[in-house]
């Protein structure tokens, strides 16, 4: 079956120079494998290091130790060590990231924000806006908002634009940090459907969430974290059952 991503010994220690060099361990010795087309969930209490793992993989954070081998069509790349230009190229072509909060340039329309995701993955200038419109439609963003800047949107709408932007062009690897936070039930369902659609199209996903229901619906396996260390890994449904029994 192969693997798309192999993470070993991922450790992140933040050194806070403003607090006299105090060190904070965000996560330690994280290990997991992500297979093609699989959805892996990461769960744990706030501060357990879930987001940090995703940030290290996307290189918003510099890992202190460990390796993360990503199998790209051009060969394997260690996401924790690769040069900045390689990471930039991977971000443009095959790795997407849904951050907890959307940050966009003022004055750029929602449609353009999402279309740029398609453009940088090599879609034609003539096709990208159409594809972006389809994604926004799928995520039930009202069409009369598409020309407006997402800065002016509600929290839930912003979050869906965020998901749309990261999904644009169907990346091979998608890292999602709380994709359903601040969404109502209806919107949660549409985001879940999009995630499953991404999986059908071959995207492999690592998703961090507090939302147990989302986990049960979409994940194939779950990694459970506690205070930066991995405590248990199991299949999504088994985990959900164990949690329910608990």
């Amino acid at each position: 079956m192969g693997e798309l991503l192999r993470v070993t010994g991922l450790t992140k220690v933040f050194k806070l120079h403003l607090l006299g060099g105090r060190e904070v361990v965000a996560c330690r010795d994280i290990e997991f494998v992500l297979r093609p087309g699989e959805i892996l969930g990461i769960q744990g209490p706030s501060g357990a290091g879930k987001s940090t793992i995703l940030k290290c993989l996307y290189r918003t954070c510099l890992a202190t130790a460990g390796q993360a081998w990503h199998r790209s069509p051009d060969g394997s790349v260690d996401l924790l060590q690769a040069p900045a230009q390689t990471i930039l190229a991977l971000r443009r072509s095959e790795i997407g990231y849904v951050s907890q909060f959307l940050r966009v340039v003022p004055r750029v329309s929602a449609l353009q924000v999402v279309a740029e995701g398609f453009l940088c993955k090599g879609w034609r200038e003539s096709r990208a806006p159409q594809e972006a419109a389809r994604l926004l439609e799928h995520l039930k963003i009202p069409a009369d908002l598409w020309e407006a800047s997402p800065c002016t949107f509600s929290g839930g709408e912003q979050q869906r634009v965020n998901v749309a932007r990261a999904s644009a062009g169907w990346p091979r690897l998608l890292l999602m940090d709380e994709p359903t936070a601040s969404l109502d039930q209806e919107s949660k369902r549409t985001v879940q459907e999009l995630i499953l659609e991404l999986k059908r199209r071959g995207t492999s996903i690592v998703v961090v969430s507090h939302d147990r229901h989302t986990f049960n619906q979409i994940t194939d396996r779950v990694l459970h974290l506690n205070r930066g260390a991995e405590v248990r890994a199991g299949r999504g449904r088994e985990y959900a059952k164990a949690a329910a029994d608990h």
């Binding site: 933040f14 050194k15 120079h17 403003l18 940030k55 918003t60 954070c61 510099l62 990471i87 930039l88």
Partner: peptide
Amino acid sequence: AGLTDQILGDPQHPYTQL
């Protein structure tokens, strides 16, 4: 020196953190 989002998200040097 590094990726902009890393410099802003996980600055390493004391001055950058400040």
